[in-house]
């Protein structure tokens, strides 16, 4: 860990001022915001992140940790902890996939610490990224190459990858937010703005060291998740070898709006398999207007993984991902939910 100046931001304008050089799009920006610290402190110890200034924004939690359910949807404060939102009765009832994605993530201790804003920005678990003794990592050292492509890539992404980076996005909540048309509320030096959640994380696009579209000094203040018939008939299925406290081998966020046996609308997100929080409009399109059975579910999952690219160690991922999504879809269909919302 390199030396840094520690500062506390008492309010948003102070955060934006102190964090003017955060440049969070860059993985190694010299200024970093600290909330729960579960990613930042870890990566600083590993010498992967070397900020010279750490701006503690936890005081913003006084105003930015709320959970509010309205007729328009769900609002989540970015400084709310994962455990608070996971346990929130409104979220559990109206957005079960969100609650499940949080309660299936990490451990109780980490969920008590981590903020939602920090959680969606969680960094990849790629071992070559997390250890600077590996020379080649395009995400950590732009232009240095990718060791994982020909190395150990058991838990690397198969969707949204390119020849520069196959790192996997390890989070769970982000997968649901991507599927559910969520918006991110941002506050920065030039004021507040809204961003589609699916635009928060950048595609690999040859520049894996640029992870997000956050502007310098911007803080995530909250998330809006729109209301929809699919939010109640929703779930998050996480497949892993351990029963708990493990990142996904494959996961699926599914929300269904059903008209009897027929799918009116579907929302599908995939985790454990993609470069960034992954929504699959291809799979959703296959389902709309069709009866949901094994065959249509399989057709949807084939569409979802049509573009999968594997590298040896992760050859099993598309198949496991497909099976996970089929299981999630059929399980969501059989959820005891009244369609009236």
């Amino acid at each position: 860990m390199r030396p840094f100046t520690y500062e506390r931001a008492g309010d948003l304008s102070e955060a934006s001022r102190l964090g003017a050089n955060t440049g969070q799009g860059q993985t190694d920006a010299p200024v970093q915001f600290l909330a729960g610290g579960t990613t930042l402190v870890d990566l600083m110890k590993l010498d992967v992140l070397r900020p010279t200034r750490v701006v503690d924004i936890s005081p913003l939690g006084a105003d930015l940790a709320g959970v509010a359910l309205t007729s328009r949807g769900l609002h989540l404060g970015a400084l709310a902890t994962m455990s608070k939102v996971a346990e929130h009765p409104d979220v559990r009832r109206a957005y079960p996939a969100i609650a499940e994605s949080l309660s299936l993530a990490a451990s109780d201790q980490l969920r008590n610490m981590a903020s939602l804003g920090g959680n969606v920005l969680q960094r990849t678990r790629c071992p070559y990224y997390r250890d600077p003794s590996w020379e080649a990592c395009n995400k950590r050292r732009p232009g240095s190459g990718c060791t994982a492509i020909q190395g150990y890539n058991h838990n690397h992404a198969v969707l949204g990858v390119d020849e520069n980076c196959i790192a996997q996005y390890p989070g769970d909540l982000g997968v649901v937010l991507a599927a559910f048309d969520a918006e991110v509320e941002l506050s920065g030096p030039s004021g507040a703005r809204l961003l589609a959640f699916t635009s928060l994380h950048r595609p690999a696009d040859g520049e894996p060291h640029l992870e997000t579209n956050l502007r310098p000094g911007e803080v995530i203040t909250g998330f809006n998740v729109p209301a929809g018939a699919w939010t109640r008939r929703s779930l998050y299925l996480k497949v892993r070898d351990r029963s708990s406290y493990e990142f996904a081998l494959a996961s699926a966020a599914v929300g269904l709006d059903m008209d009897g046996e027929t799918v009116r609308q579907a929302r599908i997100g995939l985790g454990g398999v993609a470069y960034r929080p992954w929504r699959s409009p291809e799979a959703e399109a296959v389902l709309v207007g069709k009866p949901l059975d094994e065959a249509t579910a399989k057709a949807a999952t084939d569409a979802a993984f049509a573009g999968a690219v594997t590298h040896g160690g992760n050859d099993f991922k598309p198949e496991l991902g497909r099976r996970t999504l089929v299981r999630a879809l059929l399980q969501a269909q059989s959820l005891p939910v009244s369609e009236a919302s």
Binding site: P3, F4, T5, Y6, E7, R8, G10, T52, S58, P59, G61, A62, D63, A65, G66, V67, A68, L79, A80, T81, S83, K84, E87, H88, P89, D90, N112
Partner: peptide, 26 residues
Amino acid sequence: GVMGAAAGLAAGSAARVAAQPAVSGA
């Protein structure tokens, strides 16, 4: 009061408005 009764567990952590110096240097 601001967050509502359901704020529950996280109230303590959310409310850590510091009474110590805001800046600690290297």
